[in-house]
Design a protein around this nucleic acid. Structure first.
Lengths: 176, 176
DNA sequence: ATCAGCATGTAACCAGTTACATGATTTA
DNA sequence: TAAATCATGTAACTGGTTACATGCTGAT
């Protein structure tokens, strides 16, 4: 049940249309909760139905016409309640680690090049995060909100760093 | 499409019944691809239908009666083909990072205690991994298969270590 | 004979993915 | 006026979750 809350967060940061949201999910919020435009439109419909958001009155409600949404008080309350709710970390589900485990049984076919490919992808992602850090969080921010957003970004950076470290070690190990 | 391959891997390591598989998913394989018994039974049915596995002839096919499966050659080939297939890392989808981002907008309600709770959970998981490492991979294994399984476990250890590091920093930051 | 626990399943639902449809606006 | 692209959607499907149903086996 996280997508609606991701959308509420994004809309609180800035009222947007469905497509604008989609684009922002490809950049900032989406780094931690990815989604597609189909899912976003569906969820926007539900949120509007439930009285958590509303279409800005200026926008015409026709197909093909831009429709901007903003968060209503009920939506903000809902989001605040969700933030306070305890929720366990989800069990890991990682296809690459699983594949490696399978490779222990059926042989390490194309694993070497696959690991190098993943390494390159994670290095690219890390570089992107570092650019954002440089641009938005240097020097270190003062306000609470930006400090938190910086922490989230650090999470992304640390996660990519973990992958790069593990993949580098794995590639070395495989080559023996 | 990873669950069937997780099951094939587990069955190649050791032929099992549905419930035995479920238990092993709560321990080893499930650390990297979690699943429930309902899903496992459903998938076992499909795999049998598709001729990738078969019930051991000894077992009676009645409800409530234990039914053991083994992997057929077609299943092993399928698994080997899957291992060789390139597959991009999935986009991150992490509720805690998302919640932190939401907290930047609506305030850090119960986040402090929640972060400490997660920290404890990750520390417990790390301890469990270290026990397994001690028991199964000390001294460092010689065989290829066990070296790969050790690598996978290292993945788990490094991932938990990342979380512990990030959570510790986040808790410190919040307290200022 | 009953009950606890082992073991296998069914059904309904929900979230996410993939493929496709349609209208509006801009530009060549 | 045709094509590109912006923008909003529908439909069908798949994988995963939650809740429940049923049969067998061994202990008291």
């Amino acid at each position: 049940m996280s997508l609606p809350h991701a959308i509420l967060t994004a809309l609180l940061e800035k009222p947007s249309s469905g497509l604008e949201l989609t684009r922002r999910f490809d950049r900032s919020i989406g780094y931690f909760w990815s989604s597609t435009h189909q899912q976003i439109y569906r969820e926007l419909g539900k949120l509007e139905q439930a009285g958590r958001i509303r279409a800005l009155p200026t926008a015409a409600p026709a197909r093909g016409q831009k429709k901007e949404y903003e968060v209503l008080p009920a939506g903000r309350e809902e989001l605040a309640a969700w933030v306070a709710l305890p929720e366990d970390p989800r069990p890991v589900r990682d296809p690459l680690l699983l594949r490696m485990r399978a490779a222990a049984v059926v042989g390490v076919n194309g694993m070497g090049s696959e690991l190098r490919r993943h390494l390159a992808l994670h290095e690219r992602q890390l570089a992107e995060y570092r650019e954002i850090e440089e641009r938005d969080f240097t020097p270190a921010p003062e306000g609470d909100a930006d400090r938190l957003r910086h922490l989230v970004l650090r999470g992304g950076i640390d996660l990519e760093t973990f992958w790069i470290g593990w993949l580098t070690r794995a590639i070395g190990d495989l080559e023996d």
